[in-house]
């Protein structure tokens, strides 16, 4: 009896230590990732407090934090964040939707490739920001020109990745489908699309990254709200802490949105046989 008791205890201890290990390893990861940012912020604060840099050029982290709380307490901040996130999201959806339609056409129909691909590639070689003035001229400085702008940025990575994903589906898997007499539609739905998912998700993530880049460009050109507007405001009022506050918010929200996609990716691709790195 005593022996089984000790056995149970030993097993329990093992389980607890395994759980601890798991928690410790994610904590360790967080810790390792925080070393550089924290060191940077501390040095920055010290340097600012000692007056080695002028505060009208580089304000201290505490000053930026003060500016952020000030913006937040007036309720302005939520407005800026909301409008920018809305623009990115709308542009992202629009760009992705159009990219998916064209990629499916070009991926599945050779004729569609001959028709669409040359012109899409030609448009791709235009630096996308060059469209900004034209869009503003056409659509004014309202939401539509900004969302279109972002959609253009999102379109290309999603389109290119999806097309290459479709074109590189393993012929051997298609043959399995043919052996089971799947129709063309079933082949697309049951084999080609799942096989394409990894590259599609890569496209989405880089598309989203470009979406954040383009929202800045669009908001710099003319906006009365948004995080990009805060950049302009900071420049015009000689307030570097406003600019830096905006930059930090871009970093946080951009990272957050990418993290969401990453979570989605690991959910959808848990079947993938991936390279596991050593510690």
């Amino acid at each position: 009896m005593a022996k089984t008791n000790t056995e149970i205890k030993a097993r329990y201890a093992m389980k607890v230590s395994a759980d601890h290990k798991k928690i410790w390893s994610s904590f360790e990861r967080l810790l390792l990732g925080s070393i550089l940012p924290i060191a940077l912020i501390i040095t920055w604060e010290i340097v600012s407090q000692l007056g080695w840099v002028e505060s009208y050029q580089l304000p201290a982290p505490t000053a930026i934090l003060a500016r952020l709380t000030e913006l937040a307490s007036s309720g302005e901040l939520t407005q800026h964040i909301y409008i920018t996130v809305y623009r990115v999201f709308a542009g992202f959806l629009l760009g992705t939707g159009i990219a998916v339609i064209f990629a499916l056409l070009v991926g599945f129909l050779k004729k569609a490739e001959y028709v669409f691909d040359p012109i899409i590639q030609a448009f791709r070689s235009i630096p996308s920001l060059a469209w900004v003035p034209l869009f503003i001229l056409w659509m004014g400085i309202g939401e539509s020109s900004k969302i279109t702008m972002i959609a253009v940025g999102v379109f290309f990575p999603v389109y290119l990745n999806l097309v290459s994903g479709i074109l590189t589906v393993d012929r051997k898997l298609i043959e399995v489908g043919r052996m089971y007499q799947l129709s063309l539609f079933q082949q697309i739905y049951r084999i080609i699309l799942p096989a394409t998912l990894p590259s599609f998700l890569v496209g989405l993530r880089s598309g989203l990254g470009l979406g954040w880049m383009f929202v800045v460009a669009a908001e710099l050109m003319g906006a009365s709200q948004g995080l990009g507007y805060l950049l302009v405001l900071g420049q015009n009022t000689l307030a570097p802490e406003t600019i830096l506050a905006s930059i930090i918010l871009f970093a946080i929200i951009g990272k957050l949105s990418d993290w969401l996609l990453k979570v989605l990716e690991s959910r959808l691709l848990r079947w993938q046989d991936r390279f596991e790195r050593g510690s």
């Binding site: 399995v176 052996m179 007499q181 079947w271």
Partner: peptide
């Protein structure tokens, strides 16, 4: 319809 095929590789759908 009544033919089955076993390939040299398993050819399983990874997902």
């Amino acid at each position: 319809a009544t033919t089955g095929f076993i390939f040299q590789e398993p050819r399983l759908l990874p997902w």
